[in-house]
Amino acid sequence: MIEDDDLAALRQEMKGVTPLKGVRKVDRSSSKVAEPTLQHRRQMAVTVEQKSTNHLSDEIIDLVQPLDSLEYRSNGVSLGVFRNLKRGQYSIDARLDLHRMKMLAAREAVYRFIQDCQRFDTRSAIILHGKGELSEPKAFLKSCVNTWLKQIPEVIAFHSAQKHHGGVGALYVLIKKSDRLKLENKLHINRGREDTDF
């Protein structure tokens, strides 16, 4: 507690001193932000809906070489099925050409292509990515496709194509059966018919 004498001395010392003007650090005045119009809110909602659910990496890519043969087989794909894929013995029901595409456009194209293949029960497809002998870094798009396809659960296997289909500049891709097709096959088996398809 300050004594009366001390307080009087302090006041005497502070005589003629003007207090500094305080700068307000937080503005508490509630500035009114105009409510977005109904039309603007609808546009924002549409934009959110249209955002891609694409989860494919655009940063971490395993680099491969232009003449490398690529292959991938997930659990559950038999060696016989994989051998047939490697030999190009399945009919190609869908085709995606990525030549001259930039990386982000190719990433979106690959993702949508595989989703569409499964939606329309396409089981065997081909993706043409090119060798990338002139790209910098070399085989960049090929490396991207190799990485991306392994990140898509609907892709159960892929292998570099035969020469007449593009060789190491293309990939045969096997796509998982859709739930609808699995149910259909189950019904066929229950009726006594074998499902011999991959």
Rank of each mutant, 00 (worst) to 15 (best):
P36L: 05
S52R: 07
R107P: 15
L56E: 12
R107Q: 01
R95S: 14
V110G: 06
L128M: 08
R73W: 00
L56W: 15
S57N: 15
R123L: 01
H129I: 06
A109N: 13
D97N: 15
L98A: 05
T122I: 15
L128I: 14
H129K: 04
K131T: 07
L56P: 15
Q118N: 02
A45R: 04
E35G: 01
Y72I: 01
P36W: 07
V48Y: 02
D62Y: 06
R73N: 10
D116Q: 14
L56C: 10
V46K: 00
I126M: 03
D97A: 03
R100P: 05
R95K: 15
K86L: 07
V46Q: 05
Q43K: 06
C117Y: 01
M103R: 09
G88V: 01
V48A: 06
L79R: 07
S78H: 04
T53D: 13
E49M: 05
L79N: 13
G88S: 00
I114D: 07
V64R: 06
T53C: 07
Q39A: 04
G76C: 04
S30G: 01
Q50E: 10
K102G: 15
R100T: 14
P36I: 02
L98D: 08
N84C: 11
G76L: 05
L38V: 12
E108F: 14
F82P: 09
D116L: 13
V33Q: 14
A34W: 13
E136T: 08
S29R: 10
D121Q: 12
S91Y: 12
Y111Q: 02
P66C: 13
V64D: 03
L38H: 09
I60P: 00
P36R: 09
T53P: 11
L134F: 11
R123N: 01
G130V: 05
R41M: 02
H129M: 10
I92M: 14
K86V: 03
N84A: 13
